[in-house]
């Protein structure tokens, strides 16, 4: 059984704002029967057409999909359209006291319906990821659920996802036939690499504390994304002076070229942190 929070259960058992708004200003629809969940969101704006005065929903889906929809409508009532757009899927999940990771796609669906509703109202291009909603741009990565690279990049970046399993949990991509998982891994490496691309320069002088922070930062942003692309990973075990101890995980663990990978890590850290760094692979 899923470990739902009391708040998820409460919003599922007593969902707020169920139904339609007859004269809604904005309507957003995402998902489909075939996908296993779908959400139709109705918004009513104030006379200045700025602020959301009422929000209602209809949802076909599991307990957490209904709870996420209920939470979304509660969160956006009284907000301006721009304030509402700023709500992330993580904030929807947080409002509910968290969702099981496998169910994060329910919060993404809520956020997506809101974006679609507002984009349609404003007459701007749909941020659509769903083939049911007409025109879309970009390459379809996940054919089973009709998800584009643009949508996946956005969710990967916003939620700092770094494994294909996480991308499946947040978007469903790769969750049916699994054929697109290699492409998802490439997208993760690209997106997480882009995030790390702000110009890095080796600092002149470092306190011990700063050095440790920087080592962690480089491993997170420069090194691990590259390993993820090949299904590998590493964990930082300890830092003793200039000696950095790491343990390889997933495909890297026991990989015959892990020695080579360790040298790659060392080279990166020397390049971006300090010349005297040594990297040691340890058990752990």
């Amino acid at each position: 059984m899923w470990d739902y929070t009391d708040k998820v259960k409460e919003h599922f058992l007593n969902p707020r704002n169920v139904g339609e708004i007859e004269d809604a200003d904005a309507v957003g629809e995402v998902g489909s029967l075939a996908c296993g969940d779908a959400l139709k969101l109705f918004l009513k704006l104030d006379d200045n057409k700025e602020r959301i005065v009422d929000a209602r929903f209809q949802t076909f889906g599991c307990g957490s999909a209904i709870a996420s929809s209920s939470a979304l409508t509660e969160m956006i009532k009284g907000k301006t359209l721009d304030e509402a757009l700023a709500i992330s899927n993580q904030e929807i999940a947080d409002f509910l006291g968290g969702l099981p990771e496998e169910k994060m796609h329910c919060s993404v669906m809520g956020q997506e319906a809101l974006e679609v509703a507002i984009a349609k109202y404003r007459g701007v291009a749909l941020p659509s990821h769903d083939h049911d909603h007409g025109e879309q741009e970009g390459e379809i990565v996940c054919k089973c659920f009709g998800l584009t690279d643009g949508f996946l990049r956005k969710v990967i970046a916003a939620n700092k996802l770094h494994t294909s399993e996480q991308v499946t949990h947040f978007t469903k991509a790769g969750g049916a036939c699994g054929g697109c998982i290699p492409r998802i891994k490439e997208l993760i490496a690209e997106v997480m690499g882009e995030q790390a691309k702000e110009e890095r320069k080796k600092p002149e002088k470092l306190t011990n504390l700063r050095k440790m922070q920087l080592i962690q930062d480089v491993l997170e942003k420069e090194v691990r994304p590259q390993l993820w692309a090949d299904g590998g990973d590493l964990e930082l075990i300890d830092i003793a002076g200039a000696n950095v101890q790491i343990a390889f995980r997933k495909a890297c663990a026991g990989c015959v070229s892990s020695g080579y990978t360790a040298r790659f890590v060392e080279q990166k850290l020397r390049e971006l942190v300090a010349d005297d760094i040594t990297v040691e692979e340890v058990e752990g």
């Binding site: 259960k9 599922f12 058992l13 296993g36 969940d37 076909f60 889906g61 599991c62 307990g63 999909a65 209904i66 496998e102 169910k103 089973c144 659920f145 499946t168 469903k172 969750g175 049916a176």
Partner: peptide
Amino acid sequence: EGEAILLLLSEKGICASSGSACTSGSLE
């Protein structure tokens, strides 16, 4: 959707199961 049915049945003490995706963690 099956999971939603099961959760509401469970509230009444009724234990059943579902062939739906959402109960298993799979998506199909």
